[in-house]
Design a binder for these strands. Sequence first.
DNA 1: CTGTTAGCGCATTCAC
DNA 2: GTGAATGCGCTAACAG
Lengths: 320, 320
Amino acid sequence: MVGIREIAKRANVSISTASYAMNGSSKVKPETRNRILAIAAELNYIPNMAGRILKKQKTNLVGVYLTNYGGAFYGELVSGIHEFLHQHHYDVIICSGERAHVFIPEKMIDGAIILDSTFSTETIVEYANRGHQMVVLDRELTQKNICSVRLNNQQGALEAVTQLNKAHSHKIYLVSGPSETYDSNARLHAAIRYLTENNSPYEIIAGDFSKKSGRAAARYILAKQEKMCGVFCLNDEMAIGMYSVFQKSTWQIGKDISIIGFDNIEVSHYLKPRLATIDYSKTEWGEKAAQKLFSMMNGEPTTDELIDVHLKGGESIGDF
Amino acid sequence: MVGIREIAKRANVSISTASYAMNGSSKVKPETRNRILAIAAELNYIPNMAGRILKKQKTNLVGVYLTNYGGAFYGELVSGIHEFLHQHHYDVIICSGERAHVFIPEKMIDGAIILDSTFSTETIVEYANRGHQMVVLDRELTQKNICSVRLNNQQGALEAVTQLNKAHSHKIYLVSGPSETYDSNARLHAAIRYLTENNSPYEIIAGDFSKKSGRAAARYILAKQEKMCGVFCLNDEMAIGMYSVFQKSTWQIGKDISIIGFDNIEVSHYLKPRLATIDYSKTEWGEKAAQKLFSMMNGEPTTDELIDVHLKGGESIGDF
DNA sequence: CTGTTAGCGCATTCAC
DNA sequence: GTGAATGCGCTAACAG
């Protein structure tokens, strides 16, 4: 492997001069620099990352922690992150699995963006206390070295139940996500509050954000044999599961029952009838997160931020 | 930041003894080891990755290069890779963008798995010649340090056109992907060969694997006003685009026209009528790729491999 | 069993 | 403008 010392030797300069030349320091005569660069190019010299990191104590790498790559909207989210950070000379790597958590204290990355409910808040706080900087997308967490960029769950839930309430005098079902996730709880809480204030009957069905739990919820509702009710699925995935069950039944979505989801993931574009859902820009979310992390890494003060969401109508709530 | 020398000092041992203790060498008395480990834990010691990498010349990291994270089936593919490599003490990071290519010669990762047609074969070969090991999923490439794990495109294309040919005496359209991609060419070639041998009329429509090009192809076909023809979309994405156009027309998919896709991505499960497509296990693909890379990194000989594919029927080809 | 020591590849401070 | 020397944090060969 050809290292910097080899370059220096061939160019008849010292190692430091070679290094200066590579890094574009003005301390080297243009003539000398060009000669060195030419030799480096010729020998296909590529600096070793570990060496540089060790010296500079900076990797220019940001880690994005996601639970499962299959996740419905990670693509756009990551694009947003990527685009911003690239512009600011950072590279982005996607990490998943608990073992990758250690990249943070190991100083393999300069900062992290986390959307992974299996990443314990305890660990995150511990890392923050060690001085590592993170942006969390899936929880509220106010502390030094941590910044939170969340969806406006409250607004979304409110729009959803308001719409369902307008359409149905009957009961409204709320299909929740895992009880330990922030997003589920925030949406559920806002929905319940609204329904309570309006004396609207509702029932909570425990789900876990998976299609399977959506199917289970649908079967539960069917068994009640009470048509003309509304369902707020706290994410689209569950709504999709619901569809598959209702479509095998005699109930018609958008007529006998109204459904609203959350996330506006791509798959739901292809459902018939079109699923009404709470939409937001995944790209913006990623970009904002990246911005915040960048600011933190530059020692600038940051504040938490909410991403706007809005109801995207669809035939699944009929014509109300 | 607390380093190994700090631990050593507090434990009244030398740096090397501390290091041995951490790495579980049998050269250290259990008693001493425990004392050292206790102190390390107390000080929240976490070894610095750059230091270790620099010394060991090994990162235990594998990079997976993907074009766009939104890609329809990356989730399962990556799970397959992850699962295998994790078991063998490697961590996996997902990379994208040209700038990340340099991780390979920089020795930031011990090996790479590539499914990214924007990653030039030239560069890959150059890296291989430098001694870096890679598994490519989207091209044929036989050379030292490179192993290829591809889909059995030929078999898939053959099954698709055979099925279409059975159903239609009329023309068969082949909607291609970008002309520079291996998968598109392989599928196209196999399909053409079969059709030529059987004297079946066909026409190629140039696409680029995007929904948009699928829509364009559909409009082109509609304009011909010749029903009862078959379409082999070289991927599902384009088939989905086609659906949206035909469904706004008077033509009925599966009746006036037959469509077969390739990939069996999740979205196509929700199309009505169900899209017939060429299916394969994405997880198996990832796992095989990981296996091959692991073998290479251990200096074992490897051979290229093909992943089995098979036709998954659907209503989009009617009842033939 | 434990300590001393020499790098891994690079960037940078300080002399010249 | 250039070179020699130092250290980043860690491992492992070698000596004790």
